[in-house]
Design a binder for these strands. Structure first.
Length: 257
DNA sequence: CCCCATGTTGTAGG
DNA sequence: TCCTACAACATGGG
């Protein structure tokens, strides 16, 4: 489920598994997801990962030589640290460590991407990413949004404006903020923008705390109600689905004004 | 067979 | 220039 909280959970997982282990080899099973040359990946051999970080929906694996292996998960990306002769299905990339363990970047729909960079900030600039959603304070958040022209949902999902929010969490944030996804930002009050910010922080923190296990979200959340004929967890109205930005937007037409 | 799915990118149009 | 809509990408599930 790769939006900001999911990547944060992957980051924590990798921090507890792959750091400081000698990289013996890199196996590329699917060059389609590679956004760099295999020669660049060869540079990782003999080194180890020294730090894992996240920016927006990207995960940065820094090596002790200050190279960065950068993962983007698309719709179905996942990571796994394991010790076995048999590798996961659809592992695009496998890193072999000298302790016999492996790290796999799993990529069912092949919409994920693998990048290589020598400079984290340069990469972020090159990808034209806005500031990370979870690192902004309230006034920075409001300053960025308040002069935008588009609808609130589209703008929240625009990675060039703010990085990290996707379809599921933009819906959840607006649902809990009592704001209709099609509202133009210019029509939102300071209080409403402030509410969006607070709910974003609260929802992301919740999702990270429960490691994004869907059945651990509070019952009133929208996230487990994204199905036809489901009832709103806040006012029991029927949840609606509408295409916005080519994505299925779920919302409650009664309490989201 | 159909439609749906957590993302990004390119194109066309207002 | 900025915003919206839509198709494409690839694969699996209902």
């Amino acid at each position: 489920m790769p939006e900001l909280p999911d990547i944060e959970v992957y980051k924590n997982y990798l921090t507890h598994t792959i750091l400081h282990k000698k990289i013996e080899d890199i196996i590329i099973n699917d060059s389609k997801v590679l956004q760099c040359s295999s020669n660049q990946l060869k540079k990782l051999q003999g080194n180890s990962f020294s730090n894992i970080s996240r920016y927006g929906k990207y995960c940065f694996l820094q090596t002790n030589q200050n190279y960065f292996l950068i993962l983007h998960f698309g719709m179905t990306g996942n990571v796994k640290y394991y010790k076995s002769d048999s590798d996961p299905e659809q592992a695009s990339l496998i890193v072999l460590f000298s302790n016999g363990y492996k790290f796999a970047f799993i990529n069912v729909r092949k919409l994920g991407k693998i990048f290589f960079s020598q400079d984290e900030n340069h990469f972020i600039k090159k990808m034209d990413l806005g500031p990370d959603a979870f690192s902004l304070n309230k006034s920075e958040f409001i300053n960025i949004l308040q002069y935008k022209k588009g609808s609130i949902k589209s703008t929240l999902m625009n990675q060039k404006t703010i990085a990290g929010i996707g379809n599921i969490y933009s819906d959840e944030i607006l649902y809990q903020s009592y704001i209709h996804p099609k509202r133009k930002i210019g029509n939102l009050s300071k209080n409403e923008l402030s509410s969006i910010y607070k709910n974003m922080q609260k929802i992301f923190q919740m999702a990270i705390d429960i490691k994004v296990q869907l059945d651990h979200f509070p019952d009133f959340y929208l996230i487990n109600r994204r199905k036809p004929a489901m009832r709103c967890g806040l006012c029991r109205n029927k949840i609606e689905r509408k295409k916005i930005n080519g994505r299925s937007c779920y919302f409650c037409n009664k309490h989201q004004k």
